[in-house]
Design a protein around this nucleic acid. Structure first.
Lengths: 190, 190
DNA sequence: TATATACTTGAGTGATCGCTCAAGAAACCC
DNA sequence: GGGTTTCTTGAGCGATCACTCAAGTATATA
């Protein structure tokens, strides 16, 4: 009996994610979303409920895709090579709407108001860090790095370096690839 | 003939800077500013012209004060010790309205819209980096670090580490002091 | 004290914000 | 084709946005 939607929901979420990623929470109006998604307000709210609900879905997709890309990298090249390649990969993608991390952007923008989306961004960052820690841990078991380090500390520092790199990559006149290279080389000293 | 202003302009700018620093550009409404500055709209616009103009002044003050604190540190302890202490100092101040850097927050929030304030934040970041580069350069002349490094590259990396640290410090459940310590220790390897 | 000159006040401007909802259009079942 | 159901449409809601301005108040000089 029903009529099927005109749009592919997954594609809509991806487009919304890119817009939010680029422009942030307050920087993205419903008019912007309507234009990019080619939806009128009524359809938009029927499909997603609210701007905040869509942002949450979009951010979840962002985190999921990022974790997936890292997992693929590990699958293909092992933990060490994956962590060495990841920084460059994070800033080189031409199709990405921004160099900086959507999670950190969201955290910095909304943290002060205690916004739920900031808490969720924070949780996703912690999830990434656990993924990093697991890789460092595995590298220790494989004897690739010294067993004296605390995997969680290594992950914390790696995450921090990554966040710094991706803020730097947003600046003009900065050779972020050089920083990415240095982060990768830093892993050799472990 | 004239009546003198009720408020100290410098103090007003400091309070505005703290509010903008914490809440960002879009996150700070004129109502917020009126409350913190205890000014009605008329006075506000007579004194500062616009929200954007005040933000610019506030950000300039932020950059100036930051540069001043580093200069004092250098004066007191020399370049190496200053750069080793600066990361911890950047995140430990209790009275600071946020751990993250106001310049990076502004850059990330407004860059996508090509906002003039983002360009100005970027310029200030570059100014900081030049200050760092000058210190690394001086350390080479003093024989404190190897002469083989490029001071500008060192400064770029140090700045990136600092930005990452200060984003990390904004997260909950992260021991940022440990990261600050690691950044300081990293300078020993030069 | 009279006058001139800032500075302060706050109601109110148009624009934009996120969002609602009644009505119309399209796709399915029988 | 008729009836049902879902999706789409877009005018318009109240709230808030950054901002204005005419009127009022306080402080200076004369």
């Amino acid at each position: 009996m029903p009529r099927k939607p005109n749009h592919d929901r997954n594609e809509l979420i991806a487009r919304a994610r890119d817009l939010f990623w680029r422009q942030g929470w307050a920087g993205t109006s419903l008019k912007d979303l309507e234009a990019v998604l080619k939806m009128k307000p009524g359809s938009f709210y029927a499909a997603f409920g609210s701007k905040e609900a869509l942002f949450e879905i979009a951010m979840d997709k962002y985190a999921e895709d990022g974790a997936g890309r890292l997992a693929e990298l590990v699958e293909a090249h092992g933990p060490m090579a994956a962590l060495k390649r990841y920084p460059e990969l994070a800033i080189c993608r031409e199709e990405a709407p921004a160099k900086a991390c959507m999670l950190s952007k969201t955290l910095l923008e909304l943290q002060a108001h205690g916004h739920p989306l900031a808490k969720r961004a924070s949780a996703h960052l912690m999830g990434m860090e656990e993924q990093f820690a697991a890789l460092f841990s595995q590298m220790q078991q494989d004897g690739e790095i010294a067993a004296t380090h605390d995997p969680k500390s290594l992950a914390r520092r790696y995450q921090s370096d990554l966040l710094g790199l991706r803020v730097s990559a947003e600046r003009e006149g900065i050779d972020a690839h050089a920083i990415a290279r240095e982060i990768a080389e830093g892993l050799d000293r472990l």
